[in-house]
């Protein structure tokens, strides 16, 4: 039941985000007579401090967060997995150097590094993606490393190596399929983290540039008018919460389904 609801929410998020440019929206049209108007039949989510339709801006914000989440998770997943898996497979000096590098990036707590990078690079969608990817790839690298280190002891990998298969072939055919479950689960939770991080950066004024809408920036604008127009803060916040909750719920389900700890457990049961 909850899984179905979560899937529906995520599907709606993705569809609306992708279709937003095609919809007849006017997220940047300023209607002075509607400034801070509460939700009504005309505009279900009301109007903001400039008299813009909040509903339309929510959809544009959905697109922003969807695009950022998509790009950041894809880039981090590819870069991190490749880096972690390759260095771990090579082992020895490569592995030690890689681990040290990963540890350095992990020494920056949370999204602090992303905040600093976004601040230095300046606002903009592409800079947000860069900043969050620089922070994000490390988790996948760690995970891929741990998986490869265990998996490469398995008989089928040893056999492939003995048969003279190339590194790439082994990685692609014998390791990646077994790692995929854990990586997918990690990436799912990654989407939730990126949605919050993007909104957080935008809230801090380090995200997308106005007039482009972002849920975080909408909350930031809304905090100034909280007493007169609480709907300005409530609508984007609820959107973030819905998406993040749905992603987390789905991630939990996926984790149970794939049981990410499986490869190591079965590998040792003898």
């Amino acid at each position: 039941m909850t899984t179905r609801l979560a899937s529906v929410i995520l599907l709606a998020w993705a569809l609306l985000a992708l279709l937003a440019p095609a919809l007849p929206l006017s997220p940047n049209v300023i209607q002075l007579q509607h400034i801070l108007d509460a939700p009504s039949a005309q505009a279900v989510f009301g109007y903001d401090d400039l008299g813009r339709d909040i509903g339309a801006r929510l959809l544009v914000g959905a697109r922003t967060s969807f695009l950022v989440a998509g790009w950041v998770v894809c880039l981090s997943l590819c870069l991190g997995t490749l880096f972690g898996a390759l260095t771990a497979y090579r082992g020895g000096w490569w592995d030690r150097a890689a681990t040290q590098l990963v540890d350095i990036f992990l020494a920056f707590p949370g999204i602090l590094l992303a905040i600093a990078l976004a601040g230095l690079l300046g606002p903009g969608l592409d800079n947000v993606v860069i900043a969050l990817t620089v922070v994000g790839w490390v988790g996948y690298a760690r995970l891929a490393r741990a998986q490869v280190l265990t998996l490469k002891q398995r008989e089928h990998v040893q056999a492939a190596r003995a048969l003279g298969s190339s590194q790439w072939y082994i990685l692609r055919r014998h390791l990646l399929p077994l790692m995929a479950g854990a990586l997918i689960v990690e990436a799912t939770f990654g989407v939730a983290a990126v949605v919050i991080a993007e909104a957080g950066l935008s809230f801090l004024g380090l995200g997308v540039q106005p007039p482009l809408a972002s849920w975080g920036a909408m909350i930031r604008d809304g905090t100034r008018y909280m007493l007169v127009a609480p709907h300005m803060v409530l609508a984007p916040g609820l959107s973030i919460l819905a998406v993040v909750l749905a992603v987390n719920l789905l991630g939990d389900r996926l984790r149970d389904r794939f049981d990410t700890r499986l490869p190591t457990e079965t590998g040792r049961q003898q």
Partner: peptide, 10 residues
């Protein structure tokens, strides 16, 4: 799931 920058204003 609830972000700080929303919970705070709430």
């Amino acid at each position: 799931s609830i972000p700080n920058f929303w919970l705070g204003p709430l």
